[in-house]
Design a protein around this nucleic acid. Structure first.
Lengths: 336, 336
DNA sequence: AATTTTTATCGAAGCGCTTCGACGGTTTTG
DNA sequence: CAAAACCGTCGAAGCGCTTCGATAAAAATT
């Protein structure tokens, strides 16, 4: 193993000079720095992680807690884990993965053993024990998602309410007067996740504000019941012309099939918007307008806020990212 | 922060005695051990990770590399990451996640900085650069999956060939004489993954050995073409009576729908076996016999082999785990 | 020219742990 | 019963790094 001593010897300087040259925390003359960098390259030197953790005040490791429960939609969650990992690497951090079984114990463990510098909490539930844990833990933490009680927490999330308003506005401005929201399976609304209700409530409220009829339906027990949820939205007179979907990919596929099966064309008969989707709606038939849930953006911000807490203090905050509308032609203009 | 010094002081012993009491590497009298454990509990002492890494010869961290490419089926891969993480925790190890972008560089980095004790490589391709990297790296590593060249490597995997044989045997013994295998999308066979061809080849070979007609088909470009693949398997005379499916969940669902659409009942008209499935086939309608791909089992073994390399030397090996047949009644006995 | 300030470097003190060698005190053994 | 073996404990030496003075030399200020 090559150590900082080897580098110092080869460069003909003391180890502290090597350390300063590499960290940049004190000035080092250009020529010396050059010799040190040459030595580093020649020896393929990489600082020992353990030593750096012990001596310095940083471990350069971030804990990511993602429960990965059985009922979660893996692709979306995976995307967030990935996005955090990439964001972390951009800041020279590695990611330690904490899962379900380790939710509370793991957070305690990695915190008190000083294994990680900060924690990123993914897949946050409305009432999430991990929120209480990080609150108590005195370690920089950022939640991606918004729990019921955000006091003392730093949270980052897409502005789901704004997504709903944006979708409603788009449809209203295109002349639609009856709009519906197809939601997740009902279990998503009573148990846990915080964002489905946020989007739903804003949808219905904003439809009312804009003076149009707003409906909401969800597949009751299993995805097979998308059909009846679609029927419910269409209404007895089949007068729905604007459909917003906030659910997982397979459900959206089936909902489109259900429309097709009922002889309804998109966008001629029904305009459709995919809201807060984590997948690519341009591959759908037809491609759907969407207001995507971009994991990269929120995770980058989450990592930044987590690391920012290590030096300058970041005060508790809830950062809601503004959504962006992606127009792919699945909304027909009826206003003319 | 509470350190080993605090524990030593409270227990009234030296720090080395504390260390030995906790590691068990030298004998400590029962009474002393008790006092030390009491102190540990009272102070909620957790050894500093960095110090342990530096002083000891272990970091208690395992690197897991899982590319998570865009084309991968997230749930299955997620399951493996999870399974490794859980297995690691059982051995008191944490897991550091390395993704796509970091495949080679990341492995180098965590190895030469002594951040991890060993590496578990997931989602191994037939020709996988990571195989070459770990071969060169002089760090304990285990691949979950079997690359083309296994020299010098420790590999763990389900015995996919045996899965195929088991499925064929089951159908043959139930009296079926024409059996088909519905594979993954064609891209899975030419590019990368190593196991689809292994299963396919063994399927066809073993069908021939057992003297039955063996067919193979896959959805050509996209999942929508499952229907034609099913038709291809059924054959012009629709004489297929045994179907083995080795593909992802949505594909299997659609294939069953395709059978239904053609008026074929399971198992009365066609017997079906789900091979190497990572999902629960008991929730299907009808529930399908399966020979599951159990992530837990292979990942536990992978972690064990990885850690075993840290002391006693494990010689290079390819461990193929025997499959197990799960009977849920989707194979009809035609032999009577 | 004498002083202060800045710059570049070094030595040494830890960070919290593991582990080696040593040392009394007990047991066992010949 | 002396010698050898073992047991339980301790002190101290690192592990490889960061960081805090200190110091000598160079630059800037009087």
């Amino acid at each position: 193993m090559t150590t900082i001593h080897d580098v110092a010897r080869v460069a003909g300087v003391s180890i502290s000079t090597v350390s300063y040259a590499l960290s940049g925390k004190r000035s080092v003359s250009a020529s010396t720095r050059q010799r040190i960098q040459d030595a580093v390259r020649e020896l393929d030197y990489r600082p020992n992680a353990g030593a750096r953790m012990l001596a310095g005040r940083r471990t350069y490791i971030l804990a990511v807690t993602e429960p990965l429960r059985a009922d979660t939609y893996a692709p979306a969650h995976m995307a967030f884990v990935l996005a955090v990992t990439r964001a972390a690497r951009r800041h020279d951090y590695d990611v330690l993965l904490l899962t379900q079984d380790e939710a509370s114990g793991g957070l305690q463990r990695v915190t008190s053993s000083r294994l990680v510098d900060a924690i990123v909490v993914l897949d946050v539930l409305t009432h999430d024990e991990r929120a209480d844990i990080v609150r108590a833990l005195d370690i920089p933490a950022v939640l991606v998602g918004v729990p019921a009680d955000t006091s003392g927490l730093v949270c980052v999330d897409l502005d789901f309410a704004q997504v709903a308003r944006m979708a409603v506005d788009r449809l209203v401005e295109a002349g639609h007067t009856t709009v519906g929201l197809l939601g997740h399976q009902s279990s998503a609304y009573d148990g846990g996740s915080n964002f489905p209700p946020r989007l739903r409530d804003a949808f219905l409220a904003h439809a009312a504000e804009r003076g149009v009829v707003g409906r909401f339906a969800m597949p009751e027990r299993d995805p097979g019941q998308v059909g009846s949820a679609v029927d419910e939205l269409l209404g007895p007179d089949a007068d729905l012309t604007g459909l917003v979907m906030h659910c997982e990919e397979p459900l959206q596929v089936r909902a489109l099939a259900a429309l097709r099966a009922r002889g309804l064309r998109v966008p001629q008969d029904v305009s459709v918007i995919s809201a807060a989707s984590t997948f690519d709606t341009s591959m759908f038939t037809p491609p759907l307008d969407s207001i995507p849930l971009v994991a990269d953006e929120s995770c980058e911000l989450a990592v930044e806020l987590a690391l920012a807490q290590l030096d300058g203090t970041v005060r508790p905050t809830v950062e809601l990212l503004p959504p962006h509308y992606l127009d792919l032609g699945s909304v027909a203009d009826w206003s003319a």
